[in-house]
């Protein structure tokens, strides 16, 4: 996964959150892929679009008015079919990727106030991948063709609510034409048009999420954790989300303990993340908190990369 490299770096995450509107597309998640790339990059050639779809990981910077920032010289240019692959992508490397983005930030600084908007995923399939990838549970809400109940929409776009929970959950509308399994649909129906359903992180295995991306997901779907009929207020939704959000260090510790009981070691070769933290060099302890370090190492553990990949 991309997150095993540049994107899991604490420096990058902090920088990106403050200076960019961050977008992540899994090209092979159904209900999106090429269609979403086409929306973001309407002018590029079919060939370049295909390359972005299938070449692996790519980073593209787009100005607020929809122009592409070409990476060789960091200038914003109109999208045209003449754009080359080298114009629109950066390699995901540390520290080079960070330095490149810092240069982009200098040339195209954020000029407005931070805006909070409900970060809807474009499909349940995409939401499930992000949920697994980020260790976040899912807030699923009913919709009719993508339109949700106006009062629920207002509550879910509340700034205070989003400040607290937008990065702790994955938000997805059900009823957009890319439907999840029957069990989840039934839960949505039970919640009603002003209700929400909390889904757990999908259980998975390497067959589903490993390097072989040609394989389709046939593993267990996220289970329904809670069905909360509406109508909701900001306070009631805060309570609900506060009850179910995942405390990452605790979650990782529990998973590690489970793995230890089953006689399996982490891919990074340590017994637990706490043990790894205790043995971390002083430079690491000065720079990061335990939570940040565990956060990064959990990505490393998933992606099968060693701690070396973060240096």
């Amino acid at each position: 996964m991309t997150e095993g490299g540049l994107l899991s770096n604490v420096t990058f995450k902090t920088m990106a959150a403050e200076n960019f509107v961050c977008v992540r597309l899994f090209t092979t998640a159904l209900g999106g892929g090429k269609a979403q790339i086409r929306k973001f990059l309407p002018g590029i050639s079919e060939e370049l679009c295909d390359r972005l779809m299938f070449q692996g990981n790519a980073l593209v910077v787009i100005t607020p008015d929809g122009r592409i920032v070409t990476t060789p010289n960091y200038e914003a240019v109109e999208q045209t079919k003449d754009l080359k692959e080298s114009d629109v992508q950066m390699n995901e490397k540390i520290p080079e990727g960070i330095l490149d983005l810092r240069q982009v930030m200098k040339n195209h600084p954020a000029r407005g106030e931070t805006l909070f908007a409900t970060p809807w995923q474009f499909s349940p399939a995409h939401a499930f991948v992000v949920s697994w990838d980020d260790n976040r549970r899912i807030v699923a809400v009913p919709s009719k063709g993508g339109n949700i109940n106006p009062s629920l929409k207002e509550v879910l776009s509340n700034e205070a609510l989003l400040k607290r929970f937008q990065s702790r959950y994955v938000f997805v509308k059900i009823g957009t034409g890319h439907e999840p399994p029957r069990e989840i649909q039934m839960a949505i129906e039970k919640a009603g048009e002003t209700g929400v359903v909390i889904l757990d992180i999908p259980e998975t295995n390497k067959e589903c999420f490993g390097k072989n991306t040609e394989k389709k997901y046939t593993g267990a779907w996220p289970t329904v954790r809670d069905i909360s009929p509406g109508p909701h207020t900001v306070a009631s939704l805060k309570n609900l989300l506060g009850e179910h959000y995942i405390d990452l260090p605790t979650y990782i510790t529990q998973k590690t303990e489970k793995r230890r009981r089953e006689g399996r070691k982490g891919r990074t070769g340590h017994e637990s993340f706490e043990e790894l933290w205790r043995s971390a060099p002083a430079s690491v302890r000065r720079r990061w908190t335990e939570e940040q370090y565990i956060d990064m190492m959990s990505y490393a553990d998933k992606s099968g990369r060693s701690t070396q990949s973060h240096r």
Binding site: T2, N19, F26, T28, A29, A58, V60, F128
Partner: peptide, 26 residues
Amino acid sequence: ETAARVAKESQRPILMVINRGAVCEV
């Protein structure tokens, strides 16, 4: 829709990661 609106209103560039990730068949 969301990302373009947020970028325009907050006057921030979009940083888009295109990742050939996993497949979910829904």
